[in-house]
Structure formats: structure tokens, C-alpha cells
Amino acid sequence: MTAAAVGLSHSPLIGRNDPPPDVRAAVDAAVGEARDFVRAFDPELVVLYAPDHYNGFFYKEMPPFCLATEATAVGDFGSAAGPLPVDTEAARALARGVLDRGVDLTVSARMTVDHGFAQPLEVLFGGIDRVPVVPVFVNGVATPLGPVGRVRALGTAVGEAAAALGRRVLFAGSGGLSHDPPVPVLDGAPPRVADALIEGRPPTPEQRARGEQRVLQAGRDYAAGSGAMIPINPAWDRLVLDTLESGRLADVDGWSVEWMGAEGGGSAHEVRTWIAAFASLAATGEYRMTSRFYRAIPEWIAGFAVAAAEPV
């Protein structure tokens, strides 16, 4: 088996509420470098860790993580819609391998995914249907959240199980670093909102459009300095990236749920996808980061990062 890893932030506001041209150019250059890295690696399989934003997973059943043997993208915020080319045989083998290693794992035979999964596939490969993939949902929004160490254990188990496949496997983590977008919260929600968060009734096109417009306006307000969201925290973001780059992944076991939220905002737990991806790579041996980019981008309500790593 040959392995590599990529971490890539996503944002539904990319292309809709962009930062100044020089910042966007720097992001594009970093993404281009990651794309070149992936092209050179030429993966036969992508294990993609990503969160959900109440498009596929709801409080009626909210697992800490879930592996898909089949998945379809909803096409929110202009991302691609339709089925993902899930390698079902590989997905089942990974699920068995993870469970055999003592990590509890939910399996979905019909997962619904959103821009958190679709955007990295579009950015890195030019579409959601270009490469065999195993989607792994990692909850980073819906409380209560489990210990971060369990996410590291998940990534380690997936990496060890993937080694038995004998293929070139890219482990990808999709998530923003510090960010606090207007994501609905169940506690204290009005009955109509609470019901939607629990039952997961699909929004009408009009409701989806209104929700997306609210996020877009929140990004504009935040960039103008008038938003009430927790600020992007570059110092905390550097700590996250330094920890991943150093390979000292066991350090994350001491990161409490409360500390992460206070430092990085309500959606900072999307970094769990990065932790899982790099833990998967670490399970195959020592690694080194080949590229690392970071920029605080209020227009996208995100500490935005791109990084790639390969075995030493």
C-alpha cells in the first residue's frame, strides 16, 4: 500500500463572497499545489472524511461517525449533485477492519452528503464522479460531541485497515479550522426548527435558497466587522496545523470539546476530519508535510487551510 494525505478547508461562500484578489490568488495557488500533489500521487482510492451541515444527518439518529457504502450529494450552495462513485467493496472491507480494531462505526448503505464532501472532490479532481471514494462522515457540529481521541482512533483504524487493500490510498480531510458560521442549534430552537433538525425533512427549494442567502449575508456582515460570530483565531489554527505537521497526534487526546469551541468557534470541530485523515496516514508510518497554507478569510467565515503530506 502507498498512502498520502490532504487537508482542505471548504466554504459554501467560495465564489459567492470572495476576499480581495490577492488573497484569492494565494488560495488558488495553494489549492493548485495540492491538486498537483494529488495528480502526481494518482490515487486509486480516496477515503474522504467530512462533516455534514444538517443535510444528511439529523438528531433522530446522530452518530459520531459513519462510513458509506453508497452516497449521494444534495447539491447545496451550488455544489454538484448526484451519486458519488463509492467503492462499495473497499468500503465494506474498511468497515470490517475498523470494527475488528475495536472502534464503533456506523455504516450507511445510502448516505446523503453535502458541500463538505462535494467541494473537495470538485476542487481536487474536477468533479464528484472522477475517482473511487469511501465517504466517512465525522460529526463536527451536532452536540454532544465525543472525545477527540476517538476520532484519532477512528483514523488510525481506517489507516491500518486500508493497508490491507494494497492500493494507492489518499486520505482527505475536509473542514474549516476556526470558524463560527450561523449553524442552527437544537438547544432552545423554536419548535419548527427543532423538528427540522430532528426529523431531517428536506427543505423546499425556496427554503434552501433563503437559508443559503442568510449564510451569504452573514459572511458579508462578518467581513464588514458587524457580525456577532466568534472571531477567527489564527493562533489556534497554527496550533492545529503545527500539531498535524509534527506528527504528535496523540496531543489531540487532551483537547476538550469545550476548549476547542471556545478557541475556534462553533464549527471548529470540523478539524476532526483533518485529525482523522492524518491519523490514517500516520498508521502507515512516519510522514512529512510537503505543503502548508493558511489564511484567515472573514469573507468565507473561516480559518482556511490547505496541506498535503506523504510518507517519509
Rank of each mutant, 00 (worst) to 15 (best):
136 V>H: 13
264 G>V: 05
103 V>P: 07
175 G>F: 15
11 S>P: 15
295 R>T: 12
301 I>K: 06
108 S>Q: 08
264 G>M: 08
202 P>E: 09
215 V>D: 00
259 W>G: 05
202 P>N: 06
204 T>R: 09
52 D>M: 00
287 Y>H: 03
20 P>M: 12
226 S>W: 11
269 H>I: 03
84 L>W: 00
244 L>V: 15
274 W>G: 05
167 R>M: 01
97 G>N: 12
216 L>E: 03
85 P>S: 01
38 V>N: 12
72 T>Q: 09
43 P>E: 02
84 L>N: 00
100 D>H: 11
4 A>Q: 11
14 I>D: 05
69 T>L: 09
87 D>N: 15
204 T>C: 06
149 G>R: 07
161 A>C: 04
108 S>V: 11
84 L>V: 03
204 T>I: 10
302 A>Q: 06
277 A>M: 06
73 A>G: 07
280 S>M: 04
208 R>C: 02
220 R>N: 01
269 H>A: 04
23 V>T: 15
15 G>I: 12
294 Y>N: 02
273 T>F: 01
165 L>Y: 01
83 P>D: 10
263 E>D: 08
181 P>Q: 06
41 F>S: 03
188 G>S: 00
312 V>L: 11
217 Q>G: 09
38 V>Y: 15
11 S>L: 10
169 V>G: 06
221 D>S: 08
89 E>H: 06
25 A>N: 13
48 L>K: 10
217 Q>H: 10
113 V>N: 12
41 F>T: 03
40 A>W: 06
83 P>Y: 06
242 D>G: 08
